[in-house]
């Protein structure tokens, strides 16, 4: 009994600490995304090759970074859970795929809309696109495994192991444009030798990425809060 109460004490403290952060996040996210969109859509120069369609980049690239970062976050949380057996880690990690899959979908959809005017096709089966599609499937698998193990202690373990095995996809996505010949352009911001993108484009992109990052934090925190409430409710109702 005491051990179980101890188990729920820390998530409660966690929620008390992060609630103010959540509110700050949503306002800052709305402001930054609006600012980034205005800067990106009206004030940044068109690309010399792609023309006006380059403005899709401000959404496409920032949500792609977000979905990759979300997976890295899941990976580290799962490793921490397996090492320290602290249930809050996997509680957080389990809520991330629900949000991250939305950003993955946004990336794929905007990417195919961007591909039509520039490459002439919505979809090609090359390395970057295929590995990103596999990322989408891995997120779906993580959601599935969370759903099938509802309220089962084995589910946490399965989730962590599966996310660790799936993490092999992340470096493949990052380096796929260097290892294979693909239609997708090579990395232009995070690369050895500094960014090759121009400053007028880099600033709105950074603002958008940061705004989407804050939006992601807000959505994940909201999910975690409801997950903790749900587990509290289950614990109370199982006591009767």
């Amino acid at each position: 009994m005491l051990k179980k109460l101890h188990k729920y004490a820390n998530p409660n403290k966690f929620i008390l600490v992060v609630m103010p952060i959540k509110n700050i996040c949503i306002y800052a996210a709305v402001f930054l995304i609006a600012l980034g969109l205005v800067l990106g859509l009206f004030f940044s120069p068109p690309d010399y090759q792609q023309g006006e369609t380059v403005r899709i980049m401000y959404i496409h690239v920032s949500s792609a970074w977000m979905s990759l970062f979300a997976y890295v976050l899941i990976f580290f949380l799962s490793v921490s859970y397996l090492i320290w057996k602290f249930p809050l880690f996997v509680l957080i990690a389990k809520e991330i795929p629900f949000v991250a899959i939305i950003f993955t979908l946004i990336t794929l959809i905007t990417g195919s809309l961007w591909g039509k005017p520039t490459w002439g096709t919505y979809w090609v089966w090359d390395a970057r696109l295929t590995s990103f599609l596999i990322l989408l499937f891995i997120y779906l698998g993580l959601i599935f495994i969370d759903k099938t193990f509802k309220y089962n202690a084995n589910g946490d373990l399965s989730f962590s192991y599966l996310s660790i095995v799936g993490a092999i996809n992340i470096p493949i996505i990052k380096f796929s444009v260097d290892w294979w010949n693909t239609l997708h352009q090579p990395a232009s911001v995070i690369r050895a030798g500094g960014p090759s993108i121009s400053v007028e484009m880099l600033i709105p992109l950074m603002i958008m990425s940061f705004g989407i990052f804050l939006l992601f934090i807000y959505l994940v925190l909201t999910n975690i809060q409801s997950a903790i409430d749900e587990r509290k409710f289950l614990f109370l109702s199982s006591k009767d």
Partner: peptide, 11 residues
């Protein structure tokens, strides 16, 4: 390993 992961699940 994936077959082993799914041992405890209901569906």
């Amino acid at each position: 390993p994936i077959a082993a992961l799914m041992l405890g699940s209901s569906s």
